[in-house]
Design a protein around this nucleic acid. Structure first.
Length: 540
RNA sequence: GCUCCGAUGGUGUAGUACGGCUAAGCAUUUCGCCCUCUCAAGGCGACGAUCCCGGGUUCAAAUCCCGGUCGGAGCACCA
């Protein structure tokens, strides 16, 4: 009815009829109602593609209220757009089925984890508006994991291998089982030594009895535990025997009740191992689903590429606007709703592609347009003197259609306009100073080698079809600069011109704004305020 | 090298499990027009895909089968 205008108009006439029908239906038995619903549903085909791009396709074997997903980042760096994809998909599915979503820090390698990163990931998720139903660490379960490992060994599904990594590597390639695997009678003894600290790092590992003949090399007796003598950010040096991802992930997922475990597609080959470990342990197995990684062209996500730039001082921090980290996107002026909509629009695909950053920008632009203060900034300013114009205080609107308040500006006869505009103007041309008045260019001269435009006041009324330009009053101008991020990498190499600095004057009003305020500098672009003197360019 | 995965307009995707309703929807980009005190937003429109290639099955294939090509991943005591 909401889409049929004629019905809408005559709603008061329809109301009695509607009430009658509702009464009639309510008098029927529940069974009868069910039968009728079935019948009627035949006439109403589901509109599948309704609001496409904002909802995910159905999950296999998903029951309302019973779906549990999990987002398992390793706390080894700042979360980026790739993490956002995984986390948003996990959360969206949990929400879609009225289920639960777990945030699990997969912190099983003390060499990589840092306490700082646990927090950075939490902050990133919070910004995205993701509230996990449970937050835990894989390391919380370290003893349980040890027990499962011991069980695998004592039941003959795993063994302690003391071969060198070279030998292991070679045997894998040649599909040969080593003696460690074959001597089951030594297993228990070795097991004790493993956990009693009698082996040193690199001396022994626990390996899964997979299948050395398998074409899937992951199955050729992969490592389940190794010894790492390095303090863990949460457990210190108490623990030396650490599980690998291959062991920890399936057990944790199974124990946590995860029904649908989503991961990126580079894990595809490990699915067989995952299921195999759980079945040897006779544990319930989640459904594994994979999707492609998310990365932008020229904006690498990999720590391998970013860390050198950071360490070399080329990039000063993880929130540099050229980076795809969540904190960078945030500080640059992207809103979390835009990230979510963008990611959901991508869907779950196995195709390895790099979506256009412009699409994200476009979504964001539409979202921030109504909430951005519309202000003036002139880059590479050129002086403009107006004869016959008014002096004194005037009020300017902060947004043409939204109520975002006004600002007061004191004007005189001197202004600055942006150099690209100044270059364009011809003598005799009429142009409007936005929100102020019209002028005519009388003269273009040079004073001390600097261009100065002289114009005359030509009335207040808005004239169609003349150029409208932004301006800053001379006595209201503050020096201002905007950082404009470009592609960090071109192909595989660092782009030295990836950060451009545009300098000029902005209205003094900007110095009153809090960091993070979103503005649109008219005819320049959307920006996020950094402080009273600078901003970061969000996008055009 | 071996194994696995993928392949729809410039880009990202929908559709592909149950072949016809789709010579293919949406978004983005680009370009017009309208609106507008912005180079933004909004409205309208246009350009743009023989659905990687070659065979086959079928009355009918983007959708099924076979064989290629190209791209990605794995072959870690990382996750």
């Amino acid at each position: 009815m909401s889409t049929k205008l004629d019905l809408k108009i005559s709603v008061d006439k329809l109301l009695p009829i509607i009430k009658e029908v509702v009464q009639e239906v309510n008098n029927l038995s529940i069974e009868r109602q069910g039968v009728l619903i079935q019948e009627f549903s035949k006439y109403y085909k589901e509109e599948k593609s309704f609001e496409k791009g904002v909802s995910l396709q159905e999950l296999a074997n998903a029951e309302q209220g019973k779906v549990i997903t999990r987002f398992p980042p390793e706390p080894n760096g700042y979360p980026h757009i790739g993490h956002a994809k995984a986390a948003i998909i996990d959360e969206e599915y949990a929400r879609m089925y009225n289920g639960k979503m777990i945030l699990r820090f997969d912190d099983t390698n003390p060499l990589n984890e840092k306490i700082e990163y646990y927090q950075a990931i939490r902050d990133g998720l919070e910004w995205l508006g993701i509230k996990p139903d449970l937050v835990k660490n894989t390391s919380d379960d370290i003893l349980v994991l040890h027990n499962y490992g011991k069980r695998l060994v004592s039941e003959g599904h795993a063994y302690i291998c003391t071969c060198t990594s070279d030998i292991i590597h070679k045997n894998r390639a040649e599909q040969i089982e080593c003696d460690c695997r074959r001597n089951q009678n030594e297993a228990n003894d070795r097991l004790h030594r493993m956990f009693d600290g009698q082996y040193s790092q690199n001396e022994a590992i626990i390996r899964f009895k997979g299948d050395m003949q398998s074409l899937n090399t992951v199955l050729r007796d992969p490592t389940l535990f190794r010894i790492i003598d390095h303090p863990h950010p949460l457990l210190g040096s108490k623990v030396r025997v650490w599980p690998t991802y291959d062991l920890a992930a399936p057990i944790e997922d199974s124990m946590d009740g995860v029904t649908h475990a989503l991961r990126t597609k580079e894990y595809e080959l490990r699915n067989e191992l995952y299921y195999s470990i759980l079945s040897r342990l006779k544990m319930r197995s989640p459904i594994l689903i994979e999707f492609s990684r998310l990365e932008f062209d020229g904006m690498p996500v990999s720590k391998r590429k970013i860390k050198p730039l950071l360490e070399g001082g080329i990039i000063s921090s993880w929130d540099d606007p050229r980076l795809p980290t969540l904190i960078a996107l945030h500080h640059r002026g992207f809103v979390p709703e835009a990230i979510r909509k963008f990611i959901l629009g991508l869907g779950i695909t196995l195709a390895e592609t790099k979506p256009p950053f412009e699409t994200l920008e476009s979504i964001n632009r539409k979202m921030i347009d109504p909430i951005s203060l519309k202000l003036f900034f002139v880059s590479s300013p050129v002086e403009l003197r107006v004869e016959g114009g008014k002096f004194g205080k005037i009020e300017l609107r902060n947004h043409p259609t939204q109520d975002l308040g006004n600002r007061e500006v004191e004007i005189a006869n001197k202004f600055y306009i942006a150099s690209p505009d100044a270059e364009d103007l011809q003598i005799g041309q009429k142009v409007r100073l936005m929100e102020l008045y019209n002028i005519k260019i009388l003269e273009i001269r040079y004073e001390n080698n600097k261009k100065v435009l002289i114009g005359s006041y030509e009335g207040d009324r808005v004239i169609q079809n003349i150029k409208k330009i932004q301006w800053v009053a001379e006595n209201d101008a503050v020096e201002f600069s905007v950082k404009v991020p470009k592609e960090l990498f071109i192909g595989d190499i660092y782009n030295p011109n990836s950060l451009e600095l545009k300098t000029g004057y902005a209205e003094s009003f900007v110095s009153k704004l809090k960091a993070g305020t979103l503005v649109q500098f008219m005819r320049f672009g959307f920006c996020s305020i950094l402080n009273g003197k600078s901003a970061t360019y969000t996008h055009r």
